[in-house]
Amino acid sequence: MTRETQNKVKVTALDRILFMPVPGCPGCQHGTIGRIIAEVLEELELDGTAIEVIGIGCNSGVAMLNVDVVQGSHGGAPDTATAIKRLSPDSFVYTVQGDGDCIAIGAGSFIGALTRGELITIIMCNNANYGTTGGQLAPTTLSGQVTTTTPEGRNPAVSGHPVHVAELAATFKSVAYSARGALTSPAEYRRTKKYVKKAFQKQLDKIGLGYVEILSACPANWHLTPVDSIKWMEEHMIPEFPLGEFKDSDGKRNLPRDKQE
């Protein structure tokens, strides 16, 4: 029997991805984040109800999924998602944002959504710089990292230390889930997918806001080859941004004391 006549089963089928060339520089992992979201949406059978709100930035390329997409104003994706969720409570709403969109220009919107504990899911792509505009200093830039606006490396005495957003989100009482994953290996891919699925499940169970931060490579602005950028993530980014779950709440502690079990 030749290969052509054999029965073949596609093991990586994704019905909800629109097959088109994915935008992005070689090695940019935002497409992988889009794939994780597509796989989780397929597994949770959220066809037809999911609404994606994307921020402004390279992460907008994740909008290749076959779901309804709204692009919020810069930094305002949590606000747009809040409006959609409150006006149609049965819909499933999640945002995909970059680090500049989420914690720099949209810090107010983001913290506001965390404070109110909206029933949305926020997925943040952390690539340690402003990818779209050419690699400037972002809040998540590592100490000593060279960017176009810090040519001698980020100096903590002048521009501070990187913001740990997953730990920050875990401190909010109304946040149900906060985790940080990376895309440095197939094992981390699987773990990150589990985090995204759990965060989506918190919204489906109406427990609270889910937040997942995903460390992704930006080889073009780090001035590394794609393969070297994976090594750079393992050596520099993961020691600074530890991976794992920081909060996994079942929602009972958020109730008033007399209603707790």
Partner: peptide, 13 residues
């Protein structure tokens, strides 16, 4: 999974 540009399809016999 790891292809960022969705350029690989995998088939199992």
């Amino acid at each position: 999974w790891m292809c960022p540009h969705l350029a690989i399809d995998v088939y199992r016999y």
